[in-house]
């Protein structure tokens, strides 16, 4: 009897666990992405071949 009560209570908890683990903001990955893009934009790193010069003029 006790087990049949416990299981339905446990299942949503397990599912919630599955979802939250995968939805948190990946701060370290974001740092890495920011680092890469800023180095590129500020030309601290070889530029990506794109963007015709003077396009904004």
């Amino acid at each position: 009897m006790r087990r049949t009560v416990l299981l339905p209570a446990l299942v949503p908890l397990l599912l919630a666990g599955c979802v939250t683990i995968n939805i948190y903001f990946p701060a370290a990955a974001a740092e890495k992405a920011a680092e890469k893009i800023i180095d590129e934009v500020w030309q601290l790193r070889p530029p990506v071949p794109a963007a015709p010069p003077g396009a904004s003029q």
């Binding site: 990955a29 893009i37 590129e40 990506v48 794109a50 963007a51």
Partner: peptide
Amino acid sequence: NLEISTPAVAAVRASMQA
């Protein structure tokens, strides 16, 4: 890793770099 190579993101990166 975050995805930062989609066409939309790449276009902004190139624009800012220029």
